[in-house]
Design a protein around this nucleic acid. Structure first.
Lengths: 173, 173
DNA sequence: CAGTTTATGTCAGCCATGTTGACATTCCAA
DNA sequence: TTGGAATGTCAACATGGCTGACATAAACTG
């Protein structure tokens, strides 16, 4: 580790100052409050549809990786198949998600958003992106780069591996 | 589509590129995965105590603002009193939190962590700070500044106002 | 002082979303 | 052909949100 571009001419104590327990605790609270903001807009929208965050997550990842299988989605979300199935069944019943028998492996189900599903995704994503855009543009590009850098390092490495493995397979569509 | 180097001498179009829908969507996913990392360690610890995130949050804020009232805590957490009460009752029964009758206003209850409560807070906070410290030190101080800047802007302004109002009052202890 | 409001606690029930365990079906692959 | 993988489903349970109703004590107000 050591020299990951701490600024040019800072003393050692200045270099370490951003790692005080108090700074870290502030970061923790910030993360907590920001995440609430992050989910606030979609949550409001979802209420109107009688859906919850679980539905949002499913719709989000089916959109991002159209045609992914149930197992891959399970790997990304990290929930049990029973839990996911409840949500997925609703989405299929309501005509937001289509579940097609796999061509290569007919045991698998490839998941796609219908037009209706895409409409919901657009609505949710639009609201969330609007807030994100605001935060980004108020903070500026350099801040965004830092934001990304810190968050990247906060991700659980086991989770990252599992997700990457799931997404590697997801080269359908 | 361009690279991610928002360094010094970017053209105007490069400067705006960080607001692309795709960049925003990447930020959204990053936020989601990072938050899971953020809560992973405390969640594991809490399992052992048969507590959940709700207990963690209560313990966290009682520690940060020792002596705060139930109403103030409600304002910060943004849940109903019935929901908070369930958690708070357990913590009091288990001897982690002490609820003292207010001196100025005897209707109020001021909340304090007991030694046992502080021990749990320390354990949880230690794990969470360790991950935070890792993320911070891998990313470097400039990134941390940017991280904070973006998150500040992501917080819901209504929430911010409500929390600040709650904390203004919380000048006990 | 009487009446109202505030702060807190509690009961009961509902909902969303997570969990385990068990079991059925279909289909791939050795 | 047989074992295991991918999926779906049922049942039961836990957590932590919610609403509504109600109780008590204390403060405030006219």
């Amino acid at each position: 580790m050591a020299d990951r571009s701490f600024t040019t001419n800072a003393t050692r104590s200045e270099q370490l100052l951003f790692l005080t327990d108090d700074q870290l605790r502030q970061g923790i609270e910030l993360m907590y409050f920001a995440y609430r903001g992050f989910t606030a807009d979609p949550d409001r929208i979802l209420e109107g549809y009688n859906y919850g965050r679980a539905h949002h997550r499913a719709v989000h990842f089916i959109n991002r990786h159209s045609g992914l299988t149930v197992n891959e989605l399970l790997g990304i979300l990290g929930v049990t198949k029973q839990s996911l199935n409840r949500v997925l069944r609703q989405l299929v019943d309501d005509g937001l998600v289509e579940s097609r028998v796999g061509r290569r492996d007919r045991r698998q189900r490839n998941l796609y958003l219908t037009a209706k599903g895409q409409a919901l995704e657009t609505e949710l994503s639009h609201a969330q992106r609007r807030r994100m855009r605001m935060a980004y543009s108020n903070a500026g590009p350099e801040a965004v780069a830092g934001f990304r850098k810190v968050l990247e390092n906060m991700i659980d490495s086991d989770l990252r591996d599992r997700v990457l493995r799931s997404l590697e397979n997801a080269k359908h569509d």
